[in-house]
């Protein structure tokens, strides 16, 4: 929204796009630190968590991988719609932009809903932020990601309503949508990493779903 954003720049990249890339670089380090914390503690305490009855349980007994796979798929598809919204905006097709961005908002809300359900479900199974290191790292890591998604949804809602003022148009309008898109895709990519290293890897190895240790530990 800066006038200077329309002026030619030394690198040829718009100011606003460049600052978003820099923010994302910084956010990489942010999530990198959170994911490292989680993985370090997983390696240190491989057994997982203590359930509501006081039994030590493996993490894959807690996870509902079907639900998480579904919400991951939804988030991936939201990125697809986001790409369509950006493309529509570049072509000046405002109606198509609105339809696609509404889809992104809806899918983002479904993802958040799944996360709220998952958190409640895990809480009732006995995993709290206070009773184990796994609980602390899991809730803070995925919760921080959820906060990023929520901010993205809020941003897109504001852009959606802003489009009705008629001011979201031309090069600047397309740029604003593209930058929101960069953010959304980044948050999506971070989730792919979290889904892999927090959820999927729990099913590998001797303690995993194909390993021998599962049967002996389940009470």
């Amino acid at each position: 929204m800066s006038d200077s954003a329309a002026a030619p720049t030394s690198t040829g990249i718009d100011h606003k796009k460049l600052i978003m890339w820099l923010f994302l670089a910084s956010d990489c380090m942010f999530f990198g630190t959170l994911i490292s914390t989680h993985l370090l503690y997983r390696k240190l305490y491989p057994t997982g968590f203590t359930d509501a009855e006081g039994h030590v349980r493996f993490v894959q007994n807690l996870f509902d991988i079907e639900l998480t796979s579904f919400s991951t798929f939804i988030l991936l598809m939201s990125s697809f719609l986001m790409a369509l919204a950006v493309s529509a905006m570049h072509k000046g097709q405002i109606a198509s932009f609105r339809r696609n961005v509404l889809g992104v908002i809806l899918f983002g809300l479904i993802f958040l809903g799944c996360q709220v359900y998952e958190f409640t479900h895990f809480y009732h199974k006995g995993l709290t932020i206070q009773n184990s290191v796994f609980g602390s790292t899991f809730y803070v890591l995925t919760g921080t990601h959820g906060t990023h998604v929520a901010i993205g949804v809020l941003w897109l809602v504001l852009l959606y309503f802003y489009s009705f003022t008629g001011k979201l148009r031309g090069h600047i309008g397309a740029l604003d949508v593209e930058i929101a898109g960069l953010y959304w895709h980044f948050v999506d990519i971070v989730w792919i990493i979290i889904f892999t290293v927090v959820y999927l890897v729990e099913y590998l190895g001797p303690n995993g779903i194909w390993g021998s240790a599962v049967a002996t530990i389940t009470p």
């Binding site: 200077s4 720049t9 030394s10 690198t11 990249i13 100011h15 460049l18 600052i19 820099l22």
Partner: peptide
């Protein structure tokens, strides 16, 4: 960073 890259 944006200033130094872009506004020379």
């Amino acid at each position: 960073i944006v200033t130094i890259f872009n506004m020379r």
